[in-house]
Design a protein around this nucleic acid. Structure first.
Length: 379
RNA sequence: GUGGGUAUGGCUUAGUAGGUUAAAGCGUCGGAUUGUGGUCCCGAAGAUCGUGGGUUCGAUUCCCACUACCCACC
């Protein structure tokens, strides 16, 4: 299921085997919450963007169009016309992001739909059932993502509940995978480590869930308010307790630099809205640092957004044109920027894999971890 | 040529019935964005209020002239 090829310090190079194909690790998942990449980018485009895995969301797809519809349409892969792996998030993040619209109970979470206020209940079983109907490659356990900082007492009791929910998720997923009508009976289930910024709670939790034998282990509840150094510290503390023979997934992270630092600490999988969201806001990631596409100094710049990039947007369009599209409010601006940023992230993972293959990751990290976080200097 | 109108940050305008740091939008620049309730959000810089004179304790505001532009008419 997961093959570890080689390591460099804590960093790992491996392959995750799935029914939808092998995935070289470390990798970055492209976020398509509602079965679509925001910015008018479709799965036709993703094939050109070196996307390895798409990530969709249980809560959002359950509301619209509804998991029954997706099931009827043959599952998420057919629905969005994507035959490579898909990971579905469980709805646990919406417990955090929609905190004003939900109530947590032992049995699960009562939401008021952010669309029309309609009440809906998602507990561990419901989340598994929805994800099973979606037929994703990897399902995530239903958890509570707690904001940072949060009181230690609350975090502790929340984590204990998340552990109880994990047991229910695992049992329900096993039941669903045994049913003949289930779309993907090889659906994998990943556990999620929580514990806020308290390393003791984090470690205790990881020790408990590693004994529960899930297909992969995620670290959740990071990059939700705490300083970056705290996130790195938590990873330093908790990753050593994750199983060596299972993939590790740092949820919702992050900047190119965060990803390099995550790999350095032994993480294999990432996802983040940052490449797409920032692109829509005209912030472009390049191999020479961050570029603000609307800056006036690009008004007559014939160079591509990233001079070291061969993505479809950089092969075809100048900074002057992209800037014009943004200033004119053309949707094409966001689309081309998203295409570039996703390609950049996916290429970043290619280069991280390549560096690990060559035993050159440390060198890679030393150069790019700081560089990619800075503003571009190529004038 | 005649009559009328307008001149306020890069742009489009508000405003002061004369009174301490002239307002807004856009633009510019910066920050933010991390398992997507974000065509968004926050901030900064930037104006001797067309030029010259006059009235006044005090003028961006009132008066005169000039200049530029706009409209109408010849």
């Amino acid at each position: 299921m997961f093959t570890l090829i080689k390591t460099e310090g804590a960093a790992r190079r491996g392959v995750l085997h799935t029914v939808h194909g092998d995935i070289q690790t470390p990798f970055f998942m492209n976020v398509a919450t509602a079965a679509a990449i925001k910015g008018a980018v479709s799965c036709m485009d993703l094939r050109e963007l070196k996307t390895r895995v798409a990530l969709c969301n249980t809560y959002h797809l359950h509301l619209r169009p509804g998991s029954e519809i997706v099931y009827k349409m043959g599952g998420l892969h057919k629905f969005m016309n994507w035959d490579k792996p898909i990971l579905t998030d469980s709805g646990g993040f919406q417990v955090f992001s929609l905190s004003k619209l939900r109530k947590i109970k032992e049995e699960g979470v009562y939401f008021a739909s952010h669309i029309d206020g309609k009440r809906l209940f998602i507990g561990p079983e419901e989340s598994m059932q929805i994800q099973s109907r979606l037929g994703s490659t990897i399902a995530m356990a239903f958890d509570e993502c707690v904001e940072n900082p949060a009181p230690e007492d609350y975090v502790r009791s929340s984590v204990e509940r998340t552990t109880r929910w994990l047991a229910r998720c695992k049992e329900e997923m096993a039941r669903l995978n045994s049913l003949p009508e289930t779309l993907n009976r090889d659906q994998l289930l990943f556990a999620i480590n929580q514990g806020g910024t308290y390393d003791k709670i984090r470690i205790e939790h990881m020790k408990i869930i590693r004994e529960m034998e899930l297909d992969g282990y995620a670290v959740g509840g990071l990059a939700v308010g705490e300083p970056t150094e705290v996130m790195y510290h938590i990873l330093d503390e908790v990753i050593p307790y994750a199983p060596v023979d299972k993939p590790r997934y740092l949820m919702g992270v992050g900047t190119p630099s965060n990803i390099i630092e995550g790999v350095y600490r032994g993480v294999d999988m990432f996802d983040c809205v940052m490449p797409s969201r920032n692109a829509r806001h005209a912030t472009i990631f390049t191999w020479r640092g961050i570029l603000h596409a609307t800056n006036e100094r690009y008004k007559d710049d014939p160079r591509p957004m990233d001079t070291e990039c061969d993505c479809p947007a950089c092969r075809n369009f100048s900074r002057a044109y992209i800037r014009h599209l943004f200033k004119a409010g053309e949707q094409l601006a966001g689309r081309l920027a998203v295409i570039h940023n996703l390609y950049f992230y996916n290429t970043l993972m290619d280069r991280i894999c390549e560096a690990l293959d060559n035993g050159a990751f440390t060198e890679f990290r030393n150069k790019y971890s700081p560089l990619l976080a800075e503003k571009i200097t190529d004038d």
